[in-house]
Deep mutational scan, measured.
Amino acid sequence: MGKITFYEDRAFQGRSYECTTDCPNLQPYFSRCNSIRVESGCWMIYERPNYQGHQYFLRRGEYPDYQQWMGLSDSIRSCCLIPP
Results as ranks from 00 to 15, higher is better:
Q27S: 12
S75I: 13
G2I: 12
I4Y: 00
Y51N: 15
N34S: 04
D9S: 14
C33F: 03
P49W: 07
Q52K: 10
G61D: 13
F6I: 03
G53F: 07
R48V: 14
E8Q: 12
F6K: 00
R10V: 13
L26M: 11
I76T: 00
N50S: 09
G2N: 12
Q27F: 15
T5H: 05
S75Y: 09
A11L: 13
Y7R: 00
R48K: 10
V38S: 02
T20R: 11
Y66H: 04
H54G: 01
E18V: 10
E18W: 05
D9L: 13
D9N: 09
A11R: 08
D9Y: 09
Y56N: 13
D22P: 03
F12R: 03
Y17G: 03
S75V: 09
Q52E: 06
Q52H: 12
L26W: 07
Q13V: 07
S16N: 12
N50D: 14
E8K: 05
S75F: 06
Q52C: 05
E18I: 07
Y17N: 06
R48D: 11
N25V: 08
E39A: 05
F12N: 04
D22R: 06
I4R: 00
S35V: 00
E8F: 03
Q13C: 13
A11I: 08
E62G: 04
Y63C: 05
F12P: 01
Y51L: 13
T21M: 08
I4K: 00
L81H: 04
S73Y: 06
E8R: 05
L81F: 11
R10S: 14
S35E: 00
Q52S: 11
G2D: 11
T21G: 11
M1C: 05
I36A: 03
P49S: 13
L81C: 09
L81E: 09
K3A: 12
C19N: 03
R48G: 15
K3I: 13
F12M: 10
G53M: 06
I4N: 00
A11M: 12
M1G: 04
N50W: 09
P49R: 11
D22E: 13
S35D: 00
Y7T: 00
I45V: 02
P24N: 06
F30E: 03
Y51V: 14
E8N: 14
T20A: 14
L26A: 10
R10F: 03
Q52L: 07
I4A: 03
Q13H: 14
Y51A: 14
I76C: 15
Q27V: 10
P49L: 14
D22L: 04
